[in-house]
Amino acid sequence: MLNQIYTKGAGLPLQGSDVAVAWDGLYWFLFWLSVFFFVLVVGGMIYFAIVYRQREGKKAKYIVDNHLLEATWTVIPTVLLLVIFAWGWNVYKRMVQPPSDAMEVRVIGKQWLWNFQYEDGRLETNKLVVPIHKPVKLLMTSEDVLHSFFIPNFRVKSDVVPGMYTTVWFEAKVPGEHQVFCTEYCGTSHSGMLAKIEVLEPAQYELWKANKPYTLSGVRTISSDIFAARRAAGESTQLKSETIPLPEQGKKLVEAKGCTACHSADGSARIGPSYKGIFGHEAELANGEKVTVDENYISESIRKPQAKVVKGFNPVMPPYTKEMISETEMNAIIAYIKSLK
């Protein structure tokens, strides 16, 4: 199955998910519609150019306009465009709304590599290992500048932005390797900021989780060998895999960083609100507005604590910069707060 990442010739990339199938349907509709209009316009132009070329004794006809014709070529495209828009919105909704049971993996982009942080504490660089037929939701942020996470085989992409979390989700249905590109220009080695997604059969995935040797079957990317060579040359930094689950790492961190002096884990209010039972719920702010506590809110409240202060508390918390709490640590802290139901 080597070299199968792209369909042969000028076709679209392999259909790695059901979303990709839906996307391709819309694409080919647009493609053939465009062919029709291209032939209509350019074919018409060439036909007129030949038939009405300047000839002895032939005079041009004096025509100024034709309201019926003009109305036709205004109304028909308008209707078609509305259909295209609606279809596009429909497929887009599927692309951006992950199922609630999706497995979460945290992604951190930085110049010029991708780190993948798993719930169980595992950390991988430039390689994301996922099980087949299971929805996977990526919660992504950047340590430095803008990046963008793009998987052609799954037809999904999202920018990866410092200071906020964006998401991409997919449900792989083809085992093997799938190419990931960074598609937002990020400096010198932008074109080297590549990663692979390894889609494993359930049994192999369990082996990988248990840190045992596993076999990757299915499609390979053409550039597979290039990757192997780059890794061997030590071009990408391989981080040590943490085996402590993410929420536990977060618990240790909030203790080590002194957060627990003001924030409890049992629901009791101290100087700041408790961590317990807040994730996914609404909090009322000092200015009367309401906000849902999610990844973006927690991250913002740590980096810029005065931005949205919860009602009943004083704005006394100092801001924590990236030098004090890294994005990797931030993910662990969020996972910990999330685990306190």
Partner: peptide, 8 residues
């Protein structure tokens, strides 16, 4: 201009 197509 078509949302889904643009994502890819």
């Amino acid at each position: 201009a078509t949302l889904a197509i643009d994502v890819h």
